[in-house]
């Protein structure tokens, strides 16, 4: 089984952050991202401080900064979109290296880039220190309905099988002389997507039978029981708490 499986984002380490109960980490990450998202874009230095904060969590978790930065390339589409804003937005124009740009457009671009980067970095650090099943268990403990977390769990479990199935269908098509490369050749792909849906649907039924056979009554048993201690919550609150202090300071100063 090739790379790209569900744990590609996880870095196996034994840091304090890795060992925190998942619900603490999930709650901490969500709180941090909310504070970042609600900080006014003009508080530039606050964003720098946030970056330093999430960067130190990464270092503390023994994750290489390079690992985080490479995965942050995923937000490039947002950055590409944001980079258009200074040219298309209206209002007061300023001169940047001889090019006329909109002041509000520049601010908007900065806003998108700063918040998207910090949000992405946070989720990368969370994913690097917490395995997917743990994240789902954490969400469960934070009262996210079990229906959602079960669906996400099954998706993670069966995604690889589906990818393999797609691979086999592709081979079957190619073996019969069909190797689609262009969009107008998409019809058989659409048809095979239908076949894939049916297969997945049937597998869903079989998995459900297997669950019933072992006494499933509609509720997933809670197998990752680890109740966080007060200390865990204190450690977990360090990141959002320091972000909150930064945000408040920024409000007072500017």
């Amino acid at each position: 089984m090739g790379a790209g499986h569900a744990h590609a984002l996880y870095v196996h380490e034994h840091s304090l952050v890795h060992h925190l109960p998942p619900q603490v980490k999930v709650a901490s990450a969500i709180a941090f991202v909310i504070i970042v998202a609600t900080t006014p874009r003009e508080d530039v230095w606050a964003f720098v401080a946030y970056g330093a904060a999430i960067g130190s969590v990464a270092l503390f978790s023994r994750i290489e900064l390079r690992f985080v930065l490479v995965r942050m390339l995923g937000i490039l589409p947002f950055i590409a979109f944001a980079s258009l804003l200074p040219f298309v937005a209206s209002g007061e124009q300023v001169d940047v290296f001889g090019v006329a740009m909109s002041r509000s457009g520049l601010w908007a671009a900065w806003n998108v880039v700063a918040k998207a980067s910090l949000g992405a970095a946070t989720s990368i650090v969370l994913a690097a220190t917490t395995e997917v099943p743990d994240i789902l268990a954490g969400l469960n403990k934070l009262k996210v309905p079990a229906l959602f977390t079960s669906i996400a769990g099954f998706m993670v479990r069966y995604l690889e099988l589906m990818v393999e199935e797609i691979g086999r269908m592709r081979v079957a098509m190619a073996s019969r002389g069909y190797d689609p490369r262009w969009i107008w050749q998409a019809r058989p792909i659409a048809a095979s997507t239908g076949a894939l849906f049916i297969r997945s649907y049937e597998r869903g039924e079989r998995v459900y039978d297997a669950m019933l056979a072992r006494g499933y009554t509609g509720e997933m048993p809670d197998l990752r029981r680890r109740d966080p201690s007060r200390r865990d919550w204190v450690v977990g609150s360090l990141l959002p708490a320091s972000a909150l202090i930064v945000a408040l300071l920024a409000r007072v100063i500017t």
Partner: peptide
């Protein structure tokens, strides 16, 4: 079941084995 992939639906083998008795 015939296809073990239908029977093993939890993230790890230990959790899968625990699923029945936990129920």
């Amino acid at each position: 079941f015939q296809d073990a992939n239908d029977q093993l639906f939890m993230p790890t083998v230990a959790e899968d084995v625990a699923f029945g008795p936990a129920n």
